[in-house]
Structure formats: C-alpha cells, structure tokens
Design a protein around this nucleic acid. Sequence first.
DNA 1: AGAGTATAGTTAACCTTGTTAACAGTTAAT
DNA 2: ATTAACTGTTAACAAGGTTAACTATACTCT
Lengths: 140, 140
Amino acid sequence: MQGFFRHYLSVYRPLITKLNVLLGEYDLSYSLWQVIFFVKNNGPSTLVDISSHYNIEKPSITRSVHRLEEMLLVKQIPGKDRREKIIELTDSGEEIYQTCRAKITELEHMIMKDIPENMLEAAFQVFPLIRENLNNKEGK
Amino acid sequence: MQGFFRHYLSVYRPLITKLNVLLGEYDLSYSLWQVIFFVKNNGPSTLVDISSHYNIEKPSITRSVHRLEEMLLVKQIPGKDRREKIIELTDSGEEIYQTCRAKITELEHMIMKDIPENMLEAAFQVFPLIRENLNNKEGK
DNA sequence: AGAGTATAGTTAACCTTGTTAACAGTTAAT
DNA sequence: ATTAACTGTTAACAAGGTTAACTATACTCT
C-alpha cells in the first residue's frame, strides 16, 4: 500500500483545476464555493464557524466573505452578539448555489464513469476515516 | 455518491500540511519532494520530463530545480542536446530521499491505521481511474 | 548551406490562497 | 470595574502556481 499519498495527490491538481474552470464561469473558485456551500448547508453562520470547520484561518475567510459580499451572493444579518458577523445567502446566492451544485454533480458523474460501484463506495467511505486519523495524530 | 469531491478534498489540506511539516525538517516541501521523487524513480531527467509528468508549467519546475541545486540535492549532468538540462540526484540527494521516503511510508501507515484492508485497496485503485477520466474529459 | 521553425530553459511580473502579528470593538468573568 | 477572552479586520508576507517574452540550441527542408 506504499504510494497511497502519491496516488491520492496525483488527482488533486487535475480535479481542482476542472472545478475552478467550472466555477470560473460564475466568477467563483473552489475556495469561494466552500463558503457558499457551508452557509447553504449550515444556515446563517459566523466567520469563525466557517473558519473552524475548514481549518482555515480567519483572515482567509474574511477575504472570501468580502468577495462574496461584493458579488452580492451573501449578506450580513443582524445578531445579538455585536462582535459576530452572521452571514447567509442572498437570493442570487441561492440561485448560483443550485446551478453550481448541479454542474458539480454532473462533473462527479462524468469522473466516476465506468468505475465499479463497490470501489467508489469504498473510496467514499475511506476519506472520513483518513481525515479522522489525520486529526487524531494532531492531538497526540 | 454525491459529495465525492467534497469528501476527497476535505482530506487534502490536513494531509499536505502534515507532509510539509514532515518534509520541512529537511527544508523541503511537497513540491520539491515531487521533483526528487521523479528523478529518483525515472533516472536522469530534463525539466520538460518533470514538467510534463506533473502537468506543471516549466517556470515552476525551473524554480524548484534551482532550489534543489542550491541545496546540493540535485546536480546537472552533461547531455548531447545542449538545450536540455539533465539532472540527477547527488549523494546527499539520495540520502535525503531514503530518509524522507521512510518517514512518508511511516506516516502512510499511521494514517491508514484501523482502516479495513479491502477499503484501502479499493481506494488505492480508484485514484488512477479517476485521473484517467479527468484526462479523457480534457481531450474531449 | 542557410532560412525558418520548433524546443528547452530562464526571467519577470502576476494571481490565488494560505499564513502570522497586531489591533479595535464587544462581551464575559471575577 | 477591570481584566480577560473572543470576533473580525488589516497589513505584510510566503508558497506555488500561471503567462508572456526572451535566449540559445537543434531540426527541417528546399
């Protein structure tokens, strides 16, 4: 099983490139998409929510959110704690989410074409386990 | 099987971070390691060899190779075509290859701990197939 | 043999996306 | 009431990719 990382990583650049081309049509990139995706699927969120979920430092999230605000895909809503900035998708944010989501799913299908179901299944399940192990090592 | 990309990508940052910490002990990073790895496993190579294997543009490879030369891990050897720059590992390059290779394999084992063999096997086989599909879409 | 074309590598300028450090404003704790 | 902790922002930086333009060398082909 030597070479696991190498095999894993060799997929990364072609994949992220394709995703960025796809999202680029809507002036998005995967890093922006991640924010949209999170807010859509977790409801109104603070920057810390997003930051800690993806393990990305706050300044990076600040930047992404600012861009999404400029693009009017995301807006701030009032909250009790006035330190926090709570954001949610705007209507056009929702729209673009649906569109991109569909396109990404389509791409997923194309990429998994002709690959046996059971293999994909197994791979699919492996990722969370690996991430678990990666995190555990962290705390050790 | 929706969410395949997301699951895949959620592993990337923790993994590459760990690798970069590991390699950082030897003043390397994964991008430099890729060059060392390629040259070790493919014998003396030109920058174009490396560039086209990883689908990374030449200037990026130029930069990496220059760094490795400064670190004396890689050296140029004479070739017939005087446009080409053919490089191979130096002795200390070989040494550091062996060391890092061992460390990476060790990390691989730790990360795959307690994950059923058959799942890993399947995942392992899936990566090349996915890359294939990604590339085919390219040419279409 | 010479003109034009193709290829290898380099340099410079730039972009994206991450990081740290320092700070302001707000809330919580003692 | 002070002090401590937390949220978000800004600024400066780093890694690692890109494109465009260039030099030097090799190849092609009448």
